[in-house]
Design a protein around this nucleic acid. Structure first.
Lengths: 345, 345
DNA sequence: ATACGGAACTGAACCGGTTTAGTAATACCC
DNA sequence: GGGTATTACTAAACCGGTTCAGTTCCGTAT
């Protein structure tokens, strides 16, 4: 058995209560006694039991993250690992830990949140992949659990949000293409049920509008490679096909580029392509991908910090906006072709 | 406040103890009473508090996983997300959760394990990325915490291991290349401090031996893209350069392929390339990558199950060997060139 | 001198379960 | 019919902390 507070109390010749006060910096013990207790505690190597602490203070000292993705897709996105690493850097400073749940089956997501909260596993949760009219917001309100959202939900959410100015990133990509002479700039969007899917699409529309171009080349997809291929195929089949495609993520861009090449199109000779995320493999594609570099680690760190502040009462619950993604220009974008050529099938 | 065991006891007109017995299927209550208690509990919506349970039973009902990787590399490996998803599928069935720690700073890894165990956060840990003479084995023994290792450590480990017959995968890749007429088959290895790095190298040596070929074209790397490029450069600079390279993972293969192409080599015309992991993006490379498909999700699931069995006393602590990786032949491998041509710089 | 206030500390209750020791009632046995 | 098991249950201790309600003791104001 490990050493307990009673052992320390006995060794220091005081009561359990005094040890507790001394440890937590509360009044009720003289400076001399406090010091003596702390020194005895250190000598005995006492570590207060989190379990006991949790029981009496009704806290878990942990944050929860539920990742709802098809497991086969999980490995394709460089976002989560780095995001989680960021969370950890913030937690490590506060003796909190991260409880991770992966909801694979549809509908399992809600159960995951319920379980984490009702079992008292976590004191707060981080909400990612926020969706349009997200049902998890009322759920978390019902569960009365503090939360942060990654991106601001469209439906009224009382939780602080940590977001990135995605518009600025997409706008930079579009401006880059416009500067290269492109006039037919398409967008292969991610799932439009996601706020970030919508943000990127709207930014694309806005940027085209600002350039005086019509935003008529939108193809809906779902952030998956297969979806990217299908959307790309649809776009390239059109008579007045695009000379550039802005993809909502790297995986779709990669798959789209590969598909376009399989049709005999040259990238960027016939078609310019941009991605989003700056996944490491994109610099080794042929050609390397022009994309938008985000900082998911920072995102995770800030999200966790905001949530921790809320829990300790230090936070004011304000939204945070992180720096915009940075355009990384590589060889997948180039001057617009003078004649885009016929549609491809 | 949530409903507690006392509320249930009072409502059912019995003592707390009786409720506890009824809930846990222990003797000491008559079938009638048991049923009545359970029905009252259900009516009140009682969920026994994990915290209280944990305190009295000295358990955490959680498993720990420490991921020690450079955060910038974390997103490049499709292994962990799927592995974690697999763990979750096993945990979900047992009301356990996963506590995840990411150790970024060097030396932080040991502290992570200590903290998780000493704070009583976890009842057991899953050890991945097992290294040669791994210092974490004695550490876990000192901490007296149950564990499973992913791959069998070379130093004596008392913990059950869940491994994959990596040899069979690499051997299949080499045999595939030999069948295509290759005689100069190199290997770009992952970090040799890792058991899986060594396993893959040894399998490559073994396969070449079986084919009567010398295993003289080894280039050490570290599973990173940059390392893969450097190792590839070294191999291609040799006078009698390889006509095929077996890489220890997809990222190095991707980077190596891109580098070889930048030298003007045709893949697979001049150089055949195989990877390992079957990351999704590899099928969209140009050419798509021949690689070895593993099942990290199954791996995670089995590892968690073995550990849970140990905790519940059901396990016999035996090693488990999962099915060998499957060779996925794509366009990055082809017939050996009749004349490999001069070394490239 | 006496009442009052605050600091320093103790003992016990409490968080919500599990588990042990003890008790009452019934069944069994010779 | 008296002793002994067995069953069904309760009361209380316990896990290891926090916190509340007192108690002592001291300094100070009246």
């Amino acid at each position: 058995m490990a050493v307990t507070i009673s052992d320390v109390a006995q060794a220091a010749g005081v009561s359990k209560g005094a040890v507790s006060y001394a440890l937590n910096g509360q009044p009720g013990v003289s400076p001399d006694t406090r010091e003596r207790i702390l020194s005895v505690a250190k000598d005995l190597g006492w570590k207060p039991s989190l379990r006991a602490k949790g029981l009496s203070s009704a806290k878990a000292y942990a944050l929860g993250l539920v990742v709802a993705r098809d497991p086969s897709l999980l490995g394709t996105d460089p976002f989560f690992p780095a995001f989680i690493a960021g969370i950890e850097t913030a937690l490590a400073e506060h003796d909190y830990t991260l409880v991770l749940s992966v909801a694979t089956a549809p509908g399992a997501e809600e159960r995951c949140y319920r379980k984490l909260v009702e079992n008292g596993r976590v004191d707060g949760v981080i909400l990612t992949d926020v969706r349009h009219d997200d049902s998890r917001i009322p759920l978390l309100l019902e569960l009365k659990v503090p939360a942060v959202t990654v991106n601001r939900p469209d439906a009224g959410s009382p939780f602080p949000a940590v977001s990135v100015d995605e518009s600025a990133g997409i706008i930079a990509a579009v401006e880059h293409l416009v500067a290269l002479g492109h006039r037919r700039i398409a967008h292969v969007g991610g799932g439009q049920e996601y706020i970030h899917g919508r943000n990127r699409r709207e930014a694309w529309e806005k940027a085209l509008g600002a350039a005086g171009l019509p935003a008529d080349l939108f193809a809906a997809a779902d952030f998956t490679a297969a979806g990217g291929v299908a959307a790309t195929a649809g776009l390239l089949r059109q008579a007045d096909r695009p000379t550039a495609i802005v993809y909502a993520n790297d995986l779709m861009a990669t798959a789209g580029q590969s598909y376009a090449q399989s049709l005999g199109l040259s990238v960027p000779g016939d078609l310019s392509i941009t991605g989003y995320d700056n996944a490491e493999f994109t610099q080794y594609l042929n050609p390397p991908l022009t994309t938008l570099a985000t900082d998911p680690m920072l995102w995770g760190r800030v999200a966790a910090q905001v949530l921790l502040n809320q829990l300790t009462g230090a936070g004011r619950g304000e939204d945070t906006v992180l720096p915009a993604p940075r355009l990384v220009v590589r060889a997948s974008t180039g001057p617009a072709p003078t004649d885009p050529g016929p549609a491809r099938h």
